[in-house]
């Protein structure tokens, strides 16, 4: 493994994000160094997708700063890629979807042909390459989104629930692809609801709950002895909103606010 670290580390300093006065991400500080794979877990609506969007630069924090602190941090945009929770397919063929992304990075034509063939092959999409992308099955679309991101050889890759709604075989295939991308030196930051997947893929885990980071620990530690009792409950599969009841609780040094509960 040979981590390329030009734009990393990514430093978040006291980041908050609010929409219409609702604070959705609260006082979040952390640093992502080059190397390990990070899994972000937490209940629905915890703010995982928002967190990835903030890191990726699609949203601007309402307070605090997000900074690519590496020597090449100024050129961070072209060194990252993201696969969204709902894959966005251009109204073009499978191959043209990848081609579009590569053109934006100024790859020449022969170069693009080679890369397209490689990533589609490795994602098991080669036989579909001339099909319109939007009639692919959801799982195939997710693989194509991954292939498109991979083609860009990003230094940092954000994955928002890359295997949600995939069958076990497809999930396995996607996990293998993520591993391969990781072995090429790309920094993986992903969200997942699959705790087994977090165990398999991640070197470190972040636990988010109602917009707060309640725990950030190596995977091993997180699953064997989570410090935070909400994280503990989550790992054990207890319903969080159930446990949060009448009184204000302190959890891992963080105040859990009494915001109206959201059930998903």
């Amino acid at each position: 493994m040979n981590p390329r670290a030009d734009i990393l580390p990514l430093v978040l300093d006291d980041v908050s994000f609010e929409i219409n006065g609702m604070r959705l991400i609260k006082d979040l500080s952390c640093t992502f160094e080059a190397g390990p794979r990070t899994a972000i877990i937490g209940p629905n609506g915890a703010g995982k997708s928002l967190f990835l969007r903030l890191c990726h630069g699609l949203l601007t924090p309402s307070a605090g700063t997000i900074r690519w602190a590496g020597p090449d941090g100024a050129n961070s945009v072209t060194a990252q890629a993201m696969v969204f929770q709902r894959p966005v397919m251009l109204r073009r063929s499978v191959a043209a979807n990848v081609d579009f992304a590569l053109k934006l990075r100024d790859h020449g034509k022969p170069d693009r042909t080679v890369i397209i063939d490689e990533v589609l092959g490795r994602c098991g999409l080669r036989r579909l390459k001339d099909n319109p992308a939007r009639v692919l099955s959801f799982g195939e679309q997710q693989k194509l989104a991954l292939a498109r991101a991979w083609a860009l050889k990003p230094q940092v890759l954000f994955l928002d629930e890359p295997t949600a709604s995939l069958d076990p075989a497809a999930t396995h295939a996607v996990e293998e692809i993520v591993q391969a991308i990781h072995h090429e030196g790309t920094r993986i930051i992903m969200t997942t609801h699959d705790l087994g997947q977090a165990r398999r893929l991640a070197d470190e885990v972040i636990f988010l709950h109602r917009g707060r980071m309640l725990e950030y620990a190596p995977t091993e530690t997180f699953f064997t002895e989570p410090k935070n009792d909400l994280a503990q409950a989550f790992v054990k599969g207890e319903l969080l909103w159930w446990k949060l009841g009448k009184d204000n609780r302190r959890a891992g040094g963080y105040e859990i606010d009494k915001a109206p509960r959201r059930r998903n």
């Binding site: 969007r53 990726h56 699609l58 072209t78 890629a81 969204f84 966005v88 251009l90 579009f100 992304a101």
Partner: peptide, 19 residues
């Protein structure tokens, strides 16, 4: 539908418009 994906890929206004 496209906005976030376009911005994520680093497409400027002209490239987004033509796409």
């Amino acid at each position: 539908e496209y906005e976030e994906q376009m911005r994520s890929l680093g497409a400027g206004p002209v490239r987004s418009l033509t796409a």
